[in-house]
């Protein structure tokens, strides 16, 4: 049985070999990390304007459900690319377009015209007709999409999933501006 100390050259070769493999591992880490973080980097650009259809579909004074397809659709998205929002036509050119996601934990809120409330089935969050928080666990009102009217169509700007984090980030950004 020989001890490594008796072979300093072999020991050096082992170390060189390990060093070489570590270098390769570092080199490979670049594409690995880029690959893993690609969705996060790409998503920043993933906003776009989509049409909710003709203005006539949204009578004045009413709140209606509208559906649209996510502008950035992958081949395997299937039904998840279909999204929905609540459109409140206040008067003439004034609208409010709310995300259906409750600002508590993202469950889909339902509009009840009889009591003029949005109610969440998960934990009972409630919002007034203008999207502001009425009661329950949500900390803030419903997320509002930016909208514009192009010709006779209502368009909204959609991007990331409307979450409480996104809502507070946007509020922070607009208060800075």
């Amino acid at each position: 049985m020989t001890t490594p100390e008796r072979f300093p050259r072999r020991r050096l070769l082992v170390r060189l070999g390990l060093l070489f493999n570590s270098f390769l591992a570092l080199l490979l880490a670049i594409p690995f990390v880029r690959y893993l973080s690609s969705p996060a980097l790409r998503a920043r650009k993933d906003t776009g304007w989509v049409s909710l259809g003709s203005l006539e579909r949204f009578p004045t004074g009413q709140t209606r459900l509208a559906t649209f397809r996510n502008p950035v659709v992958g081949p395997s998205d299937g039904p998840t690319a279909r999204l929905a929002c609540w459109v409140r036509h206040i008067e003439a050119d004034r609208f409010q377009v709310f995300a259906i996601n409750c600002m508590h934990l993202g469950c889909p809120v339902r509009w009840f015209p009889q009591s003029s409330l949005f109610l969440c089935p998960c934990h009972g969050g409630a919002y007034y007709a203008d999207g502001s928080r009425a009661s329950g666990p949500p900390e803030r009102g419903l997320f509002e999409y930016r909208y514009r009217i192009t010709g006779a169509e209502l368009e909204i700007e959609v991007g990331a999933l409307p979450t409480p984090g996104l809502a507070s980030a946007r509020r922070g950004a607009s208060s800075c501006a």
């Binding site: 969705p39 996510n70 659709v73 992958g74 998205d77 998840t80 690319a81 999933l161």
Partner: peptide
């Protein structure tokens, strides 16, 4: 999520 919304990814 692997993207901006819940989907295939």
């Amino acid at each position: 999520l692997g993207g901006p919304i819940i989907g295939g990814a």
